[in-house]
Design a protein around this nucleic acid. Structure first.
Length: 306
DNA sequence: TAAGATAAGAGGGACAT
DNA sequence: ATGTCAGTCTTATCTTA
């Protein structure tokens, strides 16, 4: 789940104590709590491509994953006759294995336009990986979803970039990796609106079951940007729990909720954080924070502890 | 200068037509 | 399929303390 990455120092405190959450791909400092969400370091082993068409040098691939190669790493033709190298018939278990391999083999080779489409999408995916920190977990899931979308002909008439971006967003949601639609849109250079449309389509057509975004996860992201203390974070989480119990949080932007909770916490302790600071860090407007704030204040069990 | 208020507009879900 | 409605969020501008 959490592993130590060597040779990387925290950007804030300089200590060699960065940890990586393997699920979300997020790096954070175990000493000061700084979260690196902009870039992911090359810390894994070097993986080499399996496919060496026409004798080219083995290239370094983006991630250690066969799903990320457009043909699953299979680029050979499998003999359609069920005999082994010496001409004897294959055993039944081997025969079924070969059958399965042939299925993938034909899938990777028979649909030329789809294959080209997938190649392009996976290119796009690797580009996005470099812009926002994405774990291999998310990348795998995203490419899996995109394959499904291709299968169902959902990409027809839509832009590849938008659809792969939507797959990435869906993968993030599914793995509870805190990335907003906006983050993904910026990384993909696609309009937020278009990705949202594709995401809804994926969600509907593939019958995806997504966990609800927990605003508590947004807190650490925002507070890391503003270098807020642990005390404030804890208080903000309490505020969020009260809000959730009062049904004040349903249907609201989780980033807005998290920002408001932090704002309330900042009012109690260290008061020199403004709405604008929080709004900018959370990627919402000040007005949203104010509206949430108004809603929070209405709750009977909520008291502005001074 | 930070915070609050207000208004107009976009986008999407629910529901009825 | 298309339109309406309530609700959310954003942008912009003005006012208040």
């Amino acid at each position: 789940m959490v592993t130590l990455t060597k040779d990387s120092n925290c950007l804030r405190c300089g200590k060699n104590s960065l940890l990586t959450d393997d699920v979300t791909g997020e790096q954070f400092c175990s000493k000061c709590g700084y979260v690196v969400s902009e870039k992911i370091n090359e810390s894994g082993p070097e993986w080499r491509s399996f496919q060496t068409e026409s004798g080219v040098n083995p290239a370094r691939t983006g991630a250690p994953s066969s799903l990320l190669m457009h043909d699953m790493g299979l680029s050979t033709v499998i003999n359609p006759i069920n005999k082994d190298a010496t001409g004897k018939p294959l055993s039944s278990s081997m025969k079924s294995t070969i059958e399965r391999l042939r299925t993938w083999d034909s899938r990777s080779q028979s649909h030329e336009p789809e294959d080209r489409n997938l190649r392009q999408a996976l290119n796009e995916l690797t580009r996005m990986k470099d812009k926002i920190a994405l774990s291999s977990n998310v990348l795998e899931k995203a490419s899996y979803l995109y394959r499904k979308a291709l299968e169902k002909k959902l990409v027809r008439g839509r832009s590849i970039s938008a659809m792969i971006a939507a797959s990435v967003y869906a993968a993030c949601r599914d793995t509870e990796t805190p990335r907003t639609l906006r983050d993904v849109a910026d990384a993909a250079n696609v309009k937020r609106k278009d990705i949202a449309r594709c995401y809804r389509l994926l969600h509907y057509e593939l019958q995806l079951k997504m966990p609800v975004v927990n605003p508590i996860q947004c807190i650490s992201r925002i507070s890391s940007k503003l270098e807020l203390s642990e005390k404030i974070k804890r208080h903000a989480i309490e505020v969020l729990q009260i809000a959730r119990d009062n049904k004040e949080s349903s249907g609201k932007d989780p980033m807005g909720l998290a920002a408001t909770a932090l704002y309330i916490a900042c009012l109690k302790y260290e008061g020199n954080i403004t709405q604008r600071d929080l709004a900018e860090a959370a990627g919402v407007t000040e007005v949203t924070i104010r509206n949430r704030f108004k809603g929070f204040k209405k709750q009977p069990s909520f008291k502005l502890k001074s």
